[in-house]
Design a protein around this nucleic acid. Sequence first.
RNA 1: GUUCGUGUACCUCAGAAGGAUAGAGGGUUCGCCUCCUAAGCGAAACGCCGGCGGUUCGACUCCGCCCACGAACGCCA
Length: 564
Amino acid sequence: MLDKKEILASVLSIEGIDKKEIYGLLTETADPSKGDYSLPCFKFAKVLHKSPVQIAQSVAESLTCLPPPFVKAEAVNGYLNFFVDGKECAKQVLGEIAEKKENFGNSTEGEGKTICLDYSSINIAKPFHIGHLCTTVIGGSLYRIYQKLGYKAVGINHLGDWGTQFGKLIVAFKNWSNEERLQQYGMQELTSIYVRFHTEAESNPSLEDEARAWFKKIEDGNEEALHLYNLFKEITLREVQKTYKRLKIQFDSYNGEAFYNDKMDPILQELREKKLLVEDGGAQVVDLSAEEMPPCLLVKADGATLYATRDLAAAYYRKRTYDFYKSLYVVAYQQNLHFRQVFKVLEKMGNDWAKDCVHVAFGMVSMESGAMSTRKGNVIYLEDVLNKAVEKSLEIITEKSPNLENKEETAETVGVGAVIFSVLYNNRIKDIVFSYDKVLNFDGETGPYVQYTNARCLSVMAKVGECTAEPDFDAVDNPEGKAVIACLQRFQSAIREAGERYEPCCIGRYLVDLCQSYNKFYLVHRISGEEEGVKSARLLLTNAVHVVIEEGLRLLGIGAPQKM
RNA sequence: GUUCGUGUACCUCAGAAGGAUAGAGGGUUCGCCUCCUAAGCGAAACGCCGGCGGUUCGACUCCGCCCACGAACGCCA
C-alpha cells in the first residue's frame, strides 16, 4: 500500500523547499472537517519571504490536478489541507486487506537482516515471578514485530546458569531432598530447599564453605556435581516451558552464562594486546574516565570473571554467529550503566558494530507493599497472576455467555491476554506497581476489550452470512466509517514505529484506537437487514477490522477467541 | 554527591522528527439493549502539561536552571 503522505509529497513542489522536508511536515489532520492531511506552511515563510497564508494559498492554486485518492486542496490560515475521496480510500484498503488477510502490514524492509533479541533470560532454580514478565513479553513481542517487518529474528534466552548458587543447591539437595522429590515437586522443591539453605546457613556458616566446595567441583567437572547441576537446569527449563507456552514465547537459543565460560579468554587477551585492560586495586578493568563513566571491571582480584566479561564474550559470539544488523538486550533499566560500559568497551576494541547493540530498557515492577524480594518471600508468582486472571475471566463468561462451548479455553486466552496486554500497553520505561485490581479489570483499554471487539466482528459476520453483492462504498463513507478506514490504513506505520522505537505499546495503542473507532461505527450503522450493496461494504469493513485485530494481537502474543 | 530516567485530569497513562481547540481509559453522576455480543456506546465533571526563564510566527514537545520521585555508581547478576 502506498503511503498517502508519499503520494502527496511527490506532487508537491515548492520552490526552494526540499521534498523530504515537505514529507516530514505532512500530518494527518486531527479535525476531519478541516481535511484529511495537512501541511503547515509556517516554516517556509522565512526562506520564501512570504507569509504562510500566501504560500499555502499559492501552492493550493498551483495544484491543478491531484493524484487519487486526493480530491481537494484548500488553504486555511497558513495550513494547506487536503481531502481524500472516502469511497476510493475504502475501496483500496478494504480490498487490500481482503486479499492479503493476515499478511496485511507485512514489510520487506528487514529482508536479509538479522536482529538478535536477548530476553527473559531466567535464572536457573529461581521461580518465575511478575518481575520477569516485562522482559519476557516485550522481547517476545518485538521478536514477532521484526519478523513481520521482514527481519530474521533470533530469540536468545541468556540463562543465568552459572554461579555459587549451584553449590548451595547441591548442599541443600544432599541434606534435605532427593531425586524423587525433585521430579515430583519440581521448582517448588528447588525453591524451598534454596530458602532453607539460607535460613540454616545463618546458624551454620560451614554450609557456605560446603557450597563453595561443591561449586568448585562443578567447575572441575566432577561427575556427581555435574549430574545434579544438569538436573536442576532440566527441571527449571521443563517447568518454565509451561509458562512460555501460555505466553506464546519462543527462543532459538538457550546459550547462557555457562556457555560462555570458555569464550572469555580470547576477549581478555585481545583487550590486553590493545592495552585497554589495566590493573586497578588487584582487579583488571577497562578505564572509561575519558567517556565519563566508572571503569568496567572484567577480572576480579581472585582471577574470576564477571557479568560484563561474559556479556563481551556473548556480544562477540552473537556477531560472529548471526552477523546481526542489531543486537537487542531487553533488560531492566537498573542495568543501564552496565550496558553503556559494555558497549563502550566493544567500541574501544574497534568494533564498529558496537553501535548496533541496543539496551532496550524497561521499568521496575514493585508491589504496593514495596519492592519484591525472593528472600523475604514477598513475591508474586506469575502463575498465580495468570490463574487468577483466567479464573476471573471464567466467572465473567459463565455470567455473560453461559452457552459458550469452550469456556475454559476461552477463559485461558482472555485471562492470559489481559495480563500480557496490561504490560505491553504502556511505554516500557514506566515503573509498574503491581495491583490485582488493575490487572483484573477487563473494561476499557484492556486486552479483553480488544478481543471482545474482534469477537463482535466475527459474530456479525456469522449472523449476516456471505454476501456476494458488489459493495456500495457509500455505506462506509460517513464520519464513523472514515475513522475506521483511517485507522486500518495506519496499521503498517504502527508496526514500523514499534520496531523503530522498540516499543510494543505502539501496537496496543493502535489496536485500542481501531476498536474504539469500530465500536462507534457498529453502534450507528446497522449491517444486517440493510440492502445488499450496503451490507457487502460494511461486512468488508467488519472483516478488515477483524483481520487487523487478530494480527495485531498475535504480534503482542495474545490470542483472539472466536466467541466470548 | 555524580550520572541516567520519570513528572500531563482524583487514579493509570497516550501525546517520536515543535503545529490548528491538550487526549484516552478507570473511578464518579446521568442516559442507551422488543433490533448484528452492554467485556459495548453516549453525555457531564475533572488540566497554570512539576516550577522559573530562554529559543520560535507557534513549546507538553527543543535549551538552561531549580524542585520532587526512582535507579545506578568496583570485585553480585
